[in-house]
Simulated scan of single mutants.
Amino acid sequence: MAIVFLLIIHWYSSLFFQSVFHHRYAAHGMFTMSRAWEKAFYIGCYLTQGSSYISAYAYGIMHRLHHAHTDTSEDPHSPGNSSNVFTMMWQTRNNYFDIFTGKTNVEQKYTVGLPKWEAFDKIAHSPLSRLAWCGFYIFLYYLLATQWWMFLLLPLHFGMGAIQGAVVNWLAHVVGYVNFQVNNTSKNLIPVDFIFWGEAYHNNHHKHPSRPNNSVKWFEVDTGYLAMKILHQLKIIKLRTQKSHRLKV
């Protein structure tokens, strides 16, 4: 039971930072926050993503490219460019690292307003840091696991962020339902999303990429948006209004 609880906590905490900070803040600028809180969110990403930590700056660029070139040959992570989810994950990984290391020449319009903390990324992104996190997960399982098969769950912790991204970016372009006719294959993965912080409403998001609330139907619940509303009320972030929003990528 302790292992299951650990896996659930890791899943939702990691997904919270990827959804709210990486996706909605870095890539789409749906809200603003102070530099101090921005750094706090960077640290939160590192503590929850661990061995699968990704840079908010590089992620923001990659996701903006995804919206600009969805389902074309220039899309950095489209099922249409891969034969299966594993090859898509590998291609996504390569495209991400090319952006992170500067090998990909990125137009300035894709970098506007992105959060950047190079010194922190250098440490958090290092192979030594990733190995240390893997060792920490193994140690936790050594303390908490009661059956040998539980150790088979460790890869979920090792690649948590990548797995979450792959599920949404692959499945939500392959299966699901559609609320809006758009010029790509995006779909809403599940009607009631308590698993992906509202990221499962992918078709809604592609129709309205700058809209903080991904839900449009009465039964759709965007928990990521609810979390942002709470953070807004606590004055940790400031949600942008649609009128003031300028990032349309």
Rank of each mutant, 00 (worst) to 15 (best):
Q164E: 07
Q164Y: 04
K248E: 12
V167S: 06
F158Y: 09
L143N: 09
D121R: 01
L7N: 00
G198D: 10
V85L: 07
L156T: 06
M1C: 15
L189A: 08
S73Y: 10
S186P: 02
I163F: 01
D75Q: 11
A40H: 07
G50T: 15
I99D: 02
G80H: 09
Q147C: 07
L143Q: 12
L226T: 06
W90K: 12
D75R: 08
M88W: 02
D98Y: 02
G60C: 11
T101L: 12
T101I: 09
A40G: 12
F136A: 15
S83G: 11
A26L: 06
L231C: 05
T241Q: 11
F41Y: 12
D222L: 07
L231D: 03
E38C: 01
V85S: 01
V85M: 08
F31W: 04
K122S: 15
D98A: 15
D193E: 10
F100I: 10
S13N: 00
P79V: 08
S215W: 03
K39A: 05
F86E: 10
A132V: 15
I123L: 12
K248L: 13
Q233H: 14
H28I: 01
V168M: 14
A58H: 05
I195Y: 09
F194I: 13
L171R: 06
N213R: 12
P76Q: 01
A56H: 06
L114H: 01
W37E: 00
K122V: 11
